[in-house]
Amino acid sequence: MKKKLVIIGSGPSGLVCAMTAVKCGIPASDIIVLERENELGGTLNQCIHTGYLKNLTGTELGSNLIKAVKKLGIECRTETCVLSLTSDKVLTVISPKAGYVKIQAEAVILATGCREQSRGVLSIGGTRPAGVLSAGAAQRYINIEGYMPGRKTVVVGSTEIAFIVARRMAIEGGKVITVVEPKGAPLGDKKYIKECLRPFNIPFKLNHNVTKIYGKERIEAVEICQLDKKGKPIKKTKQKIECDSLVYSCGYTPDVDIAIDAGIRIKRDTKGPFTKRNFETTISGIFASGNAHYIHKNIDKIIKESVAVAESVAKYLQKSNQPKKEKKNEDNAHVNSENKE
């Protein structure tokens, strides 16, 4: 199969890229969106809280974007996983419906989003029983599966999702004993502490960390400890707290496995691909957008960037389809200003 533009990922960034690409003159029939999950929309599908654009819920925003993309006649394939991407922009993809397929693209947008980091829980001593899970997984169990992963929970880490999941568990009748953050300031926006924790009387402790997990089969308790200025536990503040679950949320990292395998260079600080001012990675014709590019502060910034990425891709395709003149690489001379090392 041949396509002018292949977009990997159908979260907000991928969908906005697809819509904008059509607006910029790329024919809808030349675009394909590939999604690994069963549904389009990415993480938006499990975000039933408001706060997206003009106070939409995540699911509302998702369904609006999906409708718009479908109306434009852009092909979106779900349950479709990209196994590999070469520097010649050949994608190997698999899906139960279409089987094993190769796609030759002229341009590719990496809109694969991000992953939760698990690093924060690795240094915690003790056992590894059931009931220790990431905030994203907890959110999925509650909002999509309709099951409670715990009823007496300790949360470690203070991203927005940590606060939102704490609130969600409290609403569902669970008890959130405390939210602790090893650092001296919350990772997520402070307004969420006010909105999510205070109404439910959930205590929030900075400079505290979970230092030990107890329980052989299912988690039974955790040890919480205050940290000194160097981040070392102050032993006399140790406190054992009974709980049946530990939810962690220690930040995100761009999902760049496909990019790395393709040979795209990754930045040390953002952990996302190096990009030029036009969002092109170190392989010509492969672009990065949204959280796959770097972790954005909020959805508005992702959408704004995604529009700009699609515009750049349209320019790139126009240029490469013109009869060959001398190539002018003005875009290549600079590094994306927002993304400097």
Binding site: P129, A130, G131, Y141, I142, E145, G146, Y147, M148, P149, G150, R151, E172, E217, R218, D244, S245
Partner: peptide, 13 residues
């Protein structure tokens, strides 16, 4: 998760 008493989930919401 692995053994008899290591359920991943604790009932419906």
């Amino acid at each position: 998760k692995f053994s008899s008493n290591s359920n991943l989930l604790l009932g419906k919401t």
